[in-house]
Simulated assay, not measured.
Amino acid sequence: MESAGELVYVVDDDRRVREALSALLRANGRDVRAFDSGREFLDTPRQKAVSCLILDLRMPGMNGLEVQKLVSKDSQIPVIFITGKGDVPSTVLAMKGGAVDFLTKPLDEDELIRAVDAALARAQVLRREAQDTAVLQALYRSLTPREQEIFPLLASGLLNKQAAAVLGITEYTVQVHRGHIMRKMRADSFATLVRQACKLQLETSPTTTFYA
């Protein structure tokens, strides 16, 4: 059955391949958009649906690896490469670029469907992670400049009095800010706060060392 909001893009310069893949995917309940070149795909505004990309490796003009590189600059869409003439260097480059699979023509239908299912599952995970990151960043932006200054110090493991010494403020002030930070970040424990700092990629090493 078709999964709501999921979309498969197909990019291949061979019309027969595009039509065959589109028909197979639709028969398996997938919504499909097909393109005859990487440039056409890149120039077409992409929908916000959870999606994956079936991409021919060897095409005239812009090849699949070039398309993959450009797509990865502004998107985390999972890529499945297909090719009639696979080679080890190309496979390595594709996988290093984040491709989820590399299939050789003539394609095995069951193998392709499994690859698409895995790619869309990966896309769902990436979307949830992006949404979680967006929420976390919004919470972080709700902190005052001083709270943003204190947050990484606390996450690095400094005690209140140590963070106070680093910043030249009172221990009580740090304690008050710590409570505000925990509340605004919706952190139910110090461990949660540390994980949030890691996800936000905050610098958690204090610039000044304090010895109790």
Results as ranks from 00 to 15, higher is better:
Val174Cys: 07
Ala118Leu: 11
Asp110Ala: 12
Ser142Arg: 09
Cys198Arg: 15
Arg195Gly: 13
Tyr140Pro: 05
Leu24Ile: 03
Asp101Pro: 02
Arg141Trp: 03
Asp188Ser: 14
Arg127Asn: 08
Leu107His: 06
Ala164Gly: 10
Gly179Phe: 02
Val50Phe: 06
Leu53Val: 00
Leu159Ile: 00
Thr209Ala: 14
Arg195Thr: 08
Lys105His: 01
Gly97Pro: 02
Gln162Gly: 11
Thr133Cys: 05
Leu143Phe: 04
Leu42Phe: 06
Ser90Ala: 13
Ala123Ser: 09
Glu171Gly: 10
Tyr140Asn: 13
Leu143Gly: 06
Leu21Val: 01
Arg178Lys: 14
Leu154Tyr: 05
Arg39Gly: 06
Thr173Gln: 15
Met95Ala: 03
Lys199Met: 11
Val92Phe: 09
Ala123Ile: 06
Thr44Lys: 03
Lys161Gly: 01
Thr133Glu: 14
Thr170Trp: 03
Thr83Tyr: 00
Gln148Cys: 11
Ile80Phe: 08
Tyr172Arg: 15
Pro206Met: 05
Asn28Cys: 06
Asp110Arg: 08
Asp132Ala: 10
Leu57Val: 02
Ala34Asn: 09
Lys161Arg: 12
Glu66Asn: 10
Asp132Glu: 14
Ala49Pro: 00
Arg186Asn: 15
Val71Ser: 06
Ala49Trp: 03
Arg141Gly: 07
Gly38Asn: 08
Gln76Glu: 14
Ala94Glu: 11
Thr133Met: 12
Thr192Ile: 03
Arg16Ser: 13
Leu112Gly: 04
Leu158Asn: 11
Ile150Tyr: 07
Gly168Leu: 08
Asp14Thr: 10
Gln131Asn: 04
Arg186Lys: 15
Ser22Ile: 00
Leu154Glu: 11
Ala121Cys: 07
Val194Lys: 15
Pro78Val: 05
Leu70Met: 09
Ser205Asp: 13
Leu57Pro: 00
Pro152His: 06
Asp108Asn: 09
Thr83Arg: 09
Ala163Trp: 08
Tyr9Phe: 08
Arg183Trp: 11
Ile82Trp: 03
Asp31Glu: 14
Thr192Gln: 15
Pro152Gln: 12
Ala115Asp: 02
Asp13Trp: 01
Ala187Met: 04
Leu107Phe: 04
Phe151Arg: 01
Met185Lys: 04
Leu153Phe: 09
Ala49Tyr: 03
Ala115Met: 01
Arg39Ile: 03
Leu57Ile: 00
Thr207Met: 14
Asp36Phe: 05
Arg146His: 10
Lys85Met: 12
Asp14Arg: 08
Ser51Thr: 00
Cys52Phe: 08
Pro60Gln: 03
Met95Gln: 05
Ser156Lys: 02
Gln175Trp: 04
Arg186Asp: 10
Lys85Glu: 15
Leu136Ser: 06
Gln196Val: 03
Gln124Leu: 01
Lys96Gln: 15
Asp108Lys: 02
Pro145Arg: 01
Glu149Gly: 05
Leu167Cys: 09
Leu126Ala: 13
Gly38Lys: 07
Glu40Arg: 13
Phe41Val: 06
Pro145Gln: 07
Gly179Asp: 11
